Computed example of a mutant assay.
Amino acid sequence: MGRKYSGLYELIENDGEAGDYFDTLPEYVKESIQEREQNINSFESLRDYAANLMRNE
Rank of each mutant, 00 (worst) to 15 (best):
E44F: 01
G7F: 10
K4Q: 10
R55G: 08
S45C: 13
A18V: 06
G7R: 03
A50M: 06
S6H: 08
E27F: 10
K4S: 13
Y49K: 08
L53E: 10
L25S: 04
D15V: 10
L25Q: 10
E10G: 08
R55S: 05
G2F: 11
L53V: 12
V29T: 12
D15S: 11
Q34D: 14
A18D: 00
N52F: 09
Y28P: 02
N56W: 09
N56H: 08
S45Y: 05
S32N: 13
D23E: 15
F43P: 00
E13M: 09
A18M: 01
M54Y: 02
Y49D: 04
I40E: 08
E37V: 06
I33M: 03
A51W: 04
Q34G: 06
V29R: 00
Y49R: 07
Y49A: 12
L25P: 01
T24H: 14
D48Q: 14
I40F: 10
N41P: 04
S42K: 00
Y28F: 11
G2H: 15
E10I: 03
Y49S: 13
N52R: 10
N39D: 15
E13V: 00
I40R: 06
R36L: 12
M54S: 14
S45G: 00
Y49L: 09
Q38A: 09
Q38T: 03
E44P: 00
G19I: 03
D15Q: 03
E57A: 13
S6P: 02
P26L: 04
A18T: 01
G7W: 02
Y9E: 12
N39F: 13
K30E: 13
N41C: 13
D23Y: 05
S45L: 11
N39I: 12
M54K: 11
E13W: 04
T24L: 14
S32A: 11
Y9N: 11
Y5F: 15
K4Y: 11
E31P: 02
E44M: 05
R36K: 15
N52D: 12
E27R: 06
G16V: 02
I12R: 04
Y5H: 07
D48M: 10
N56E: 12
Y21M: 04
R47C: 14
G7V: 04
Y21E: 03
E17C: 07
S42G: 00
D23Q: 14
Y21V: 07
Y21F: 15
E13S: 15
E57D: 14
R3G: 02
Q38V: 14
K30L: 06
S42W: 05
N41Y: 05
L53M: 09
Y9W: 14
V29F: 06
N39A: 14
K4T: 11
Y28R: 03
D20S: 14
N41S: 12
E13Y: 05
Y21I: 07
V29E: 07
I33Q: 01
Y49M: 09
A50E: 02
A50G: 08
P26C: 02
Y21S: 01
E37H: 15
R36M: 10
R36H: 10
L53Q: 07
P26V: 02
A51S: 13
E17V: 13
Y9Q: 08
L8P: 06
D48L: 13
Y21G: 03
Q34I: 09
I33T: 01
S6Q: 11
L46A: 05
Q34R: 11
E35H: 07
E37M: 07
Y5P: 11
Y49G: 00
E31Q: 06
K4R: 12
S6L: 08
G16M: 07
